[in-house]
C-alpha cells in the first residue's frame, strides 16, 4: 500500500510527538486485540488460528512423528511457513522461516529434550504455518499462534519402558490417553522505532513511516536471541540512537508477561 506524502508526514509527526499519538490511539505498549481459537484441526496434534483486529490471520498446525534420535542430530522442531500469495522461495518467506526456526531452536528454557520419549526415540515436531492474510510483518502474530498451538498440543501417551537401548523394541503408545505437551514456545515481538519513540505491534500505516524496527524474542521473563533490526519501509529508514535499543528491550521485558498471561488464559 502506498500512502501519500501528506499522510506519511502527518503520521510521522503524530508518532514522533511526545507522547506519541498513534493513529488508532493505542498506548505505546498496547497491542491490537487478537482472537484465538485452538484445537480445531482434527488430524493435527495441536492447532490454532489467530485473527488480528486488522484482518491479519494465520493458522498453525502441529504434528508429531517418532524418530530415532540416535541416528541423526537434526533439530527436533521443524517449521514450515506458507504465506498466501507469496512464492515459497521469496525473500520474505525465507527470511521469516529462517527466523522462526531459530526462535524454536533448543536453548536454555526451551529444551528440546522434553520431546524425548525413550533412550532411543523422540518426537519430532512439525509446525506448519499458513498466513492467510497479513497487512504488516506477521512474525509476532505467527509466534502467538505457535505458542497457542504448542500450548494445547496433545501427544499419545507412552506405555513402553523408557530404557530401550538394549532391548530392540519400538515405543508403544496408549490407545486413547493423550498427554499434554505443555511446551511453552518463545514469543516474538515487533517493536517500531519512530524518532525517539518506541511503539509495539505497529500496524500497516505505522510500519510505513517508522525509522526502524526490532524483532525481539522473549521467553520466560527474559529477552533472548534471535534479535534483529529490520526496516519495514524503505522511504523513512534511518539509524537510531543506541539507547533506544536498550529502552526497547526493556519495554518488551515489562509487557511481555502480560501478553503471555493473556495468551495462556485464552
Amino acid at each position: 500500500m502506498t500512502l501519500s506524502i501528506a499522510e506519511k508526514s502527518y503520521l510521522y509527526d503524530s508518532l514522533t510527538a511526545s507522547p506519541s499519538i498513534r493513529p488508532d490511539g493505542r498506548k505505546p505498549h498496547q497491542f491490537r486485540p487478537i482472537e484465538v481459537s485452538t484445537d480445531f484441526l482434527p488430524s493435527s496434534n495441536g492447532s490454532s488460528r489467530i485473527i488480528s483486529g486488522d484482518g491479519s490471520e494465520c493458522i498453525v498446525s502441529v504434528k508429531a512423528k517418532v524418530i530415532d534420535h540416535t541416528l541423526s542430530d537434526e533439530e527436533l522442531i521443524q517449521v514450515d511457513l506458507d504465506i498466501a500469495g507469496e512464492r515459497t522461495d521469496s525473500p520474505q518467506v525465507e527470511t521469516l522461516m529462517s527466523l522462526l526456526n531459530k526462535v524454536l531452536k533448543s536453548g536454555p528454557g526451551f529444551e528440546h529434550s522434553r520431546l524425548q520419549l525413550t533412550e532411543r526415540y523422540s518426537f519430532k515436531i512439525f509446525i506448519d504455518i499458513l498466513v492467510i492474510s497479513s497487512n504488516c510483518n506477521p512474525a509476532s502474530l505467527i509466534s502467538f499462534a505457535m505458542f497457542s498451538a504448542l500450548n494445547t498440543t496433545t501427544l499419545p501417551k507412552l506405555i513402553s519402558s523408557f530404557d530401550d537401548l538394549k532391548v530392540e523394541e519400538l515405543p508403544m503408545f496408549d490407545d486413547y490417553d493423550l498427554v499434554n505437551l505443555k511446551l511453552k514456545s518463545p514469543l516474538v515481538f515487533l517493536l517500531a522505532i519512530v524518532g525517539n519513540n518506541l511503539i509495539v505491534d505497529p500496524d500497516a500505516n505505522e510500519s510505513e513511516v517508522c525509522d526502524n524496527a526490532i524483532i525481539v524474542t522473549w521467553l520466560d521473563g527474559k529477552i533472548r536471541s534471535p534479535i534483529r533490526t529490520l526496516t519495514l519501509n524503505n522511504s523513512y529508514s534511518k539509524g537510531f540512537d543506541p539507547t533506544l535499543l536498550q529502552k526497547g528491550l526493556k519495554l518488551i521485558e515489562e509487557n511481555a508477561a502480560a501478553v503471555l498471561t493473556a495468551l495462556e488464559s485464552s
Partner: peptide
C-alpha cells in the same frame, strides 16, 4: 484485564 493486549477466545474455530 491488562491494558497491554486483549485476547478473545473463540469457542470453536471452524463450525
Amino acid at each position: 484485564m491488562s491494558d497491554v493486549i486483549s485476547v478473545i477466545k473463540r469457542q470453536s474455530g471452524l463450525k
